[in-house]
Simulated assay, not measured.
Amino acid sequence: MTFQELHPKVTEITLNTTQSRDEKLLSICQLLSDSISYYNWVGFYFANHQEKTLHLGPYVGAETDHTVIPFGKGICGQVAVSNENFVVPDVAAQDNYIACSFTVKSEIVVPLFVNGENIGQIDIDSHVLDPFTKEDELFLEFVCATIAKLY
């Protein structure tokens, strides 16, 4: 399924009045995981700005021990500080990478802004080296902007 075909499906999930916010986020994770072959782990982390930590939210994929990540640590923690997208073509080449699984080869993290504040992020791991393009970034920015309307 193309990113353009996924746009209305993401919007439809966010407009569903029978699901809680977390159920909607999980549905989006499942949709992305099912629709894009190289999205092997899809999840959300949410910021606790007082503690300067990220906390795992809904996700689809292998279980992770990384349920709390300090700001600045790993790719997700760096995005919590930089407020910018981070595309990692090869996680083995990153010094500040938190290994989730030996199967993960690349990662993309896009921040989720609500009223100009970075409240969290979508995190996607792939078992493929360097699969993420500018189109992935633009699509995930759309996903985050659509989700931001839930807050």
Score class of each variant (00 low, 15 high):
V42S: 08
H66Y: 13
Y38T: 12
I147C: 12
P58G: 14
A99F: 04
V42G: 09
T18V: 10
V87T: 10
Y59R: 00
G116E: 11
I119T: 05
T64M: 06
D123F: 04
T17N: 15
V91H: 01
S27A: 12
Y38S: 12
E135P: 00
S101A: 07
F142H: 14
I69R: 06
A99I: 07
M1C: 03
D22Y: 00
I69E: 02
E141V: 15
W41D: 02
E135R: 08
V143I: 00
N40Y: 04
T103M: 10
N118T: 11
I124T: 01
V10A: 06
R21C: 12
H55K: 08
L129H: 06
P111S: 11
C76M: 07
T2Y: 07
E63V: 14
K24S: 14
S106A: 15
P89K: 00
I75Y: 03
G74S: 11
E117F: 03
E63N: 10
T18M: 08
A47S: 15
S35N: 04
P8N: 09
C76V: 04
K73A: 10
T53E: 15
V110N: 08
F71I: 03
G72Y: 02
G43Q: 05
T14D: 13
V110K: 10
M1K: 04
F46T: 14
A145E: 07
